[in-house]
């Protein structure tokens, strides 16, 4: 196995309560993301899949306490670097797409302006050049009439369009090595979901991006991902290639989750 771009080793943590005690929610979470591959982290509510990923970027909730273990990104231990360095990595080398794109976009600026500002932050250049890049990025994520769309505000975008704009920002305006998608299609319509996943897949192939897809939906995973990490209640219960997870799941929970997703009678 080649050197993975991100390696999470025995990562444990929890939430601090008002009394000062820590309720542990992550137990020795370990997984690695191979360069240029799509890895899915699958789990249900409370599995810890999102908190783990947010910890990579230092975006975990303020009450989160790191207990032990490390997150190693390309040789840098992210649990020990300071906030400023983490901030430098965010956007330039690691970027993230959230579930609710319209909430993640600033409602008072146009879409084009937000993309252009982000572009200048990372690459510099004139406003005009940045705006051209922004429009080009919107075109690349198949937003029709990107020139006029760039002048619109987030509330004028549908959920699917906003998510495309977010992907344009995270993958094209920022040029990261690692793209983390946190439930990118949850809450979107089925047809839109499929289009968003096609788009992500296309971009990942084209730019040899490493993608980490956090999802509860095994259906989305089957067609798109190379590797699967299954999490349950703060533990990684199984990791393997997508084929192996779907055809020969070893862990009891994985089997149950798969059965439930396929709605086979075994789930009941």
């Amino acid at each position: 196995m080649t050197d993975p771009i991100l390696k999470i080793s025995s990562f444990s943590g929890g939430f601090a309560k008002e009394t000062g005690d820590v309720t542990q929610i992550l137990y020795d979470v370990s997984y690695a993301l191979e360069r240029g591959k799509l890895t899915a982290v699958v789990g249900e509510t409370g599995s810890g899949k999102s908190v783990t990923a947010l910890s990579v970027l230092g975006l975990h909730p303020p009450s989160f306490r790191h207990i032990s273990g490390s997150i190693c990104f390309d040789g840098i231990d992210l649990t020990s670097v300071d906030a400023r360095e983490l901030h430098k990595l965010r956007g330039s080398r690691i970027s993230m797409v959230f579930q609710d794109a319209r909430a993640a976009l600033n409602p008072v600026f146009t879409i084009g302006r937000q993309l252009a500002d982000t572009y200048r932050l990372h690459h510099g250049g004139s406003r005009r050049a940045a705006m051209e890049h922004a429009i080009e990025a919107l075109r690349r994520v198949h937003i029709p009439e990107p020139e006029s769309r760039a002048k619109q505000y987030p509330h004028e975008f549908s959920g699917g369009m906003a998510q495309r704009a977010m992907i344009a920002m995270a993958a094209l305006i920022c040029t990261p090595d690692l793209l983390i998608l946190d439930e990118p299609t949850t809450g979107l319509d089925v047809t839109t979901q499929a289009e968003i996943m096609d788009l992500v897949l296309g971009l990942a192939r084209e730019r040899a991006l490493t993608v980490c897809l956090i999802t509860h939906d095994l259906g989305v995973v089957a067609e798109t991902c190379d590797h699967v990490v299954v999490m349950n209640r703060g533990h990684v219960v199984e990791t393997g290639s997508t084929e192996q997870i779907f055809t020969a799941p070893q862990n009891d929970y994985t089997q149950r989750l798969l059965a439930a997703s396929q709605l086979s009678e075994a789930a009941e």
């Binding site: 029709p144 549908s158 047809t191 979901q193 095994l218 259906g219 084929e243």
Partner: peptide, 20 residues
């Protein structure tokens, strides 16, 4: 054709709609 299937090796023949 857009509904994801949680099974290995199923390739969907997608019928696509334009626009929104």
């Amino acid at each position: 054709s857009a509904a994801p299937v949680a099974e290995w090796g199923v390739t969907r023949k997608r019928v696509r709609l334009d626009g929104e």
